[in-house]
């Protein structure tokens, strides 16, 4: 009698367990289906863009639309170089975004370092100045900036594009958080060894900050590479346009041809995409840092 009760409880237990297990499997399948659908929504536009950029115009304009086509061609990629000065756009974007990234890495880390590890008069005021600067949108002061640049003859020059962006409040903030986190006794020991302040910064502090520097590098690179309004305002001639500005204007003029526009779009995002594949964690880190508050 007793044995039988024990048996039944065990049986009930095991069916409960298998029910629980089955539920878990079902839930995990549902979860994966929903996520895969979301992945499809994110990936499909890119995939379609990439494939279509290799199609003939008449294969792009079909109804119903097709994902694949029988024939592929480089024609769009050749056509886009002929229709718009794409090579010039690429060159301008590389110079603008690249130089801005390099200079701002230096300047932002210098300022961030001073705010994090030096004691001086007015430190709090400078810190608040940087924090408030982070909240001021570019759109609000773009008109006077345009006039300023015009008066200094810096419109349509690389200097004019690079200098205003050569430091960012967010970069300073990011580097400051990084330097605050480094051990206190490092610079004191170096100072006792007779290293000067610049050496302490370059030889000891910067090498320890490589991950944050990488994150800031990809962050500023992406921002400037993709920026539209800023280069649109500070450049007036077609030969000085960056990729987003050039493409945006091209789209406005030539939407009757889809293929070349698609090819241009692919070319404009390819470099960042390649960097993303190799340096993904730094991209993500930059975004995560932007959500950090003290």
């Amino acid at each position: 009698m007793e044995a039988r009760t024990a048996d039944t409880t065990e049986l009930v237990d095991s069916t409960k367990k298998s029910n629980y297990h089955r539920n878990k499997v079902i839930k995990s399948i549902i979860f994966k289906v929903i996520m895969s659908l979301l992945i499809l929504i994110v990936v499909f536009p890119f995939l379609w863009l990439l494939l279509s950029s290799f199609k003939y115009e008449k294969d792009i304009i079909t109804y119903p639309p097709h994902i694949f086509s029988g024939k592929y061609t480089f024609q769009n990629y050749i056509k886009v170089w002929d229709t718009i000065p794409l090579l010039g756009y690429v060159k301008n974007t590389v110079i603008f975004a690249g130089a801005t990234m390099l200079i701002s890495l230096v300047l932002d880390s210098m300022t961030g370092y001073a705010l994090a590890r030096m004691e001086f008069k007015g430190k709090t005021a400078f810190y608040y100045f940087v924090m408030v600067s982070m909240m001021i949108p570019f759109m609000v002061y773009m008109i006077p900036l345009f006039i300023e640049m015009n008066k200094m003859n810096l419109l349509d020059t690389y200097t004019g594009l690079i200098v205003p962006r050569a430091t960012t409040a967010f970069g300073i903030f990011m580097m400051r958080s990084n330097f605050v986190g480094l051990p206190r006794d490092l610079d004191e020991a170096a100072r006792l060894d007779g290293l000067n302040e610049w050496r302490i910064f370059t030889k000891i502090m910067l090498p320890l900050s490589k991950p944050t520097l990488m994150a800031l590098a990809v962050f500023t690179l992406t921002n400037n590479w993709n920026d539209l309004l800023y280069p649109l305002i500070l450049t007036t001639t077609s030969s000085m346009r960056t990729l987003p500005a050039g493409l945006a204007l091209f789209t406005g003029q030539h939407i009757s041809f889809y293929g070349p526009v698609m090819a241009g779009a692919v070319i404009s995002m390819l470099p960042l995409f390649i960097i993303y594949i190799f340096a993904q964690k730094y991209f993500v880190q930059g975004s995560a840092m932007s959500g950090m508050k003290e």
């Binding site: 279509s52 500005a245 404009s268």
Partner: peptide, 22 residues
């Protein structure tokens, strides 16, 4: 999934705009 969901972030709004127009 996380890596994939971050891909549009590195794509410019200009390019996204072009893709969505089409």
């Amino acid at each position: 999934s996380r890596s994939v969901f971050y891909v549009p972030v590195i794509c410019s709004l200009t390019t996204s705009g072009i893709i969505f127009s089409m």
